[in-house]
């Protein structure tokens, strides 16, 4: 498994292999091919950050550029899914969900339950999330908690290329609607990825570092920040266990609870704003299930409860740092 590729390439490869495997898999979104109807280059963009570049030539007719009309095409993906297709719709930035949220939370999420189990909606909605790209308040928010709150949706947020490929393939094969969150600052990160297809089951957290003193529960880009913090703490003799949740709904409570009971110190690191966040959710569950095992108060490390600022100096302050994570670990250990 020696080959290293970026998360961008891993996502491209997952789409490529799934379109080749199943004729019902189609991909749609704004500028995912690019240049439609113009006189210039075909496949001009391959997505705003080039994730779908090159797929158009290999899968003619399966990649559909859409009008800038999120309600219509996200809804169309959902409608096609209810008719047996397996569409992957790209919402570009998850912040754009505001203009099409009804189709996601009132339609896709509820069909199966509302129709008594007689409808499947195997749609995947891919979107970029997260701060650090100098993209300001309307293109940077980590909105995972909003989707986790909705029953019927599955929510995925990979932290590396290997997970991105396997989780996207699972998302496409899954029969429920999946919100697939891609951190834009991780697109260039390379990890070892098999060339073959593989699926990572949902609801299985990854213990990315084992440790006995404290448990850091996180996902997405914060996994990388937490690993930096854990490495720094290890030099001071503090061994952190770092849990990458990978899928936020379903969530792997067992792994979180086992680790919390082992270490007695839990630090929840989340790039979402603090109120009703993943960090808050995990904190509540740990305090309910592991109260007797806890040796320090549960810590939440999140941005402040503000929109994402533009100015680089402010944005860097906004995003939780390795240092702030390490401080939170020490605070819990000091109890």
């Amino acid at each position: 498994m020696a080959r290293k590729i970026s998360m961008r390439q891993a996502i491209n490869e997952a789409l490529d292999q799934e379109m080749a495997r199943d004729p019902n898999v189609i991909v749609m979104g704004e500028d995912i091919v690019g240049g439609a109807g113009g006189e210039g280059e075909e496949d001009a963009w391959g997505g705003v950050l080039g994730v779908t570049k090159g797929l158009h030539a290999k899968h003619k007719g399966k990649l559909l550029d859409t009008p800038l009309s999120e309600s219509a095409y996200i809804g169309a993906a959902i409608g096609a899914a209810a008719c047996g297709m397996r569409p992957v719709a790209e919402l570009m930035f998850l912040d754009f969900m505001g203009v099409c949220f009804d189709q996601i939370f009132n339609q896709a999420a509820k069909f199966k339950y509302m129709f008594g189990g007689k409808a499947e909606t195997p749609v995947v909605i891919r979107a970029m999330v997260g701060a650090g790209f100098r993209a300001a308040a309307q293109h940077s928010q980590m909105l995972t908690p909003l989707f986790v709150h909705i029953p019927g949706l599955k929510v995925v947020c990979p932290s590396n290329a290997y997970d991105a490929k396997g989780l996207l393939i699972q998302s496409i094969r899954d029969n429920d609607p999946v919100i697939f969150c891609e951190h834009k600052n991780l697109y260039g990160l390379e990890t070892e990825v098999p060339a073959e297809s593989y699926a990572i089951p949902f609801g299985e957290a990854n213990v990315v570092r084992e440790g006995k003193h404290a448990t850091i529960v996180t996902y997405g880009m914060m996994v990388n920040r937490s690993m930096e913090a854990a490495a720094a703490l290890a030099k001071q003799g503090v061994e952190c266990e770092v849990i990458d949740l990978r899928t936020l709904s379903p969530i792997d409570w067992d792994t979180v609870i086992d680790s919390a009971e082992k270490t007695g110190h839990v630090i929840c690191v989340d790039e979402a704003n603090p109120r009703c966040s993943i960090a808050a959710d995990v904190s509540a569950m740990v305090s309910q299930e592991c109260f007797k095992a806890l040796k320090g108060s549960i810590q939440m490390v999140t941005p402040p409860h503000t929109p994402v600022p533009f100015s680089p100096v402010l944005e860097d302050l906004y995003i939780p740092s390795a240092d702030s994570i390490a401080k939170a670990v020490k605070k819990s250990l000091a109890h």
């Binding site: 498994m1 290997y162 396997g166 098999p194 073959e196 297809s197 593989y198 699926a199 990572i200 990854n206 213990v207 084992e210």
Partner: peptide, 16 residues
């Protein structure tokens, strides 16, 4: 080790 288990899991999850 955890890594040994993970490596086997990665193999087992390949299609086919």
């Amino acid at each position: 080790s955890r890594q040994l288990v993970d490596d086997v899991l990665k193999y087992k999850r390949l299609d086919g």
